[in-house]
Design a protein around this nucleic acid. Structure first.
Lengths: 195, 195
DNA sequence: CGAAAATTTGACATGACTCAACTGGAGTGG
DNA sequence: CCACTCCAGTTGAGTCATGTCAAATTTTCG
């Protein structure tokens, strides 16, 4: 197939690891995703824009974050190779995005337009299943993160993060990890000092 | 149809509000859900059990919660008529539940076994779509809640809660609302005093 | 090399928690 | 129908985890 390059391999891997897709349907799906390269710090989605694509990270590292009333950043999600990133709310409702999606490292994403995807759902039933499973998993993962925030101390959350996301830790500045954990960079720094 | 009673009406409404389902498929789906009545304080799911059903609340009010290392309760979700409640992680992985699901008021739920549902997915494609959409929405709602916890003060979260869930507020004791918001009952009480 | 960005430090502030005692209402049983 | 218990809610004093602010230091990178 003509999409055997590195970027698409990760996507194919993600799809086929969850559902069975006949070869010709798979190439139809794959070919509907368009690659987009991003330089470091480039925005894939700005607050206020409508998100019209589903987006898969082929390589690099991105983050999605929002700004609160005090102008503080809160990171919702990091995305490295194999992850999906988006402002899902905007994508689903077609309302202006409330979040930003920005590249932390030079990155490549593969995107598919909503209209294309909606049509594909009817031709490729496995795709519907794929996203159902994806969202179920995303939901439970987010639930776990939320419970961690409710029940664990900042130190424990930091240790969990390092254990779980060693790869992400290497790619992002410390103050973003603080933001992801829901603490200030100063406090994270202080925690690190004590052994 | 024979499932026109009150409990099933809410389920039918939920299904048909999101997807188109041919009449005969709809009755197939509906008839796969079995009602279960719960007295106040009864457990629908205990920690340690495997959750084998998807569960729709027809009437009453339930909560799902977990116990942290200090024995404190953390409420993940309330469920009133029209909501789905579960320990989704246990359902998906077939591992023992880490959460409890308990009736706060006398309640009726409609449940479908995982095996039945998996088979139905193949016969009723709309069902796959239904749950995809459900989980997308659940994910964005949870994301919003998580961001609230990150960026808002306890007082703001409480006010948001009251605005958003007036109906739930009536049905559950105050200390459970505190738990849902991630604060202590004492602190909620103190907040309420100051106007 | 120099400027900008990230991290560290330390003094001080505060939102929210802990604990223990108290109040009040809702059963329950004698 | 009263007395008793139990559970939810309230109060207040003291504490702690984490935040704020501002300055100093280190790292990154053009």
């Amino acid at each position: 197939m003509s999409f055997s390059n590195q970027a698409y391999k990760a996507l194919i891997g993600d799809l086929t690891s969850l559902v069975e897709i006949p070869e010709h349907q798979l190439s139809l799906v794959i070919s509907s995703f368009k690659p987009k390269k991003l330089t470091k710090k480039a925005y894939l989605l700005n607050k206020g824009e409508v998100s019209n694509h589903m987006r898969f990270v082929a390589e690099g590292c991105l983050r999605s974050y929002m700004l609160d009333n005090n102008g503080q950043e809160h990171i919702l999600q990091f995305g490295i190779s194999g992850w999906w990133v988006n402002d899902l709310y905007s994508y689903l409702t077609r309302k202006p995005a409330t979040h930003f999606v920005q590249a932390i490292q030079p990155s490549t994403v593969l995107q598919i337009h909503r209209d294309t995807l909606e049509k594909l759902y009817n031709r490729v039933p496995s795709l519907e299943r794929f996203f159902r499973i994806k969202f179920q998993n995303a939901y439970t993962a987010l639930q776990e993160r939320h419970l961690d925030k409710m029940s664990l101390t900042a130190k424990d959350r930091y240790e969990n993060f390092r254990r779980k996301y060693r790869d992400i830790e290497q790619m992002v500045p410390q103050y973003m990890i603080a933001s992801y954990l829901g603490i200030t960079p100063e406090f994270l720094s202080a925690m690190r000092k004590k052994e």
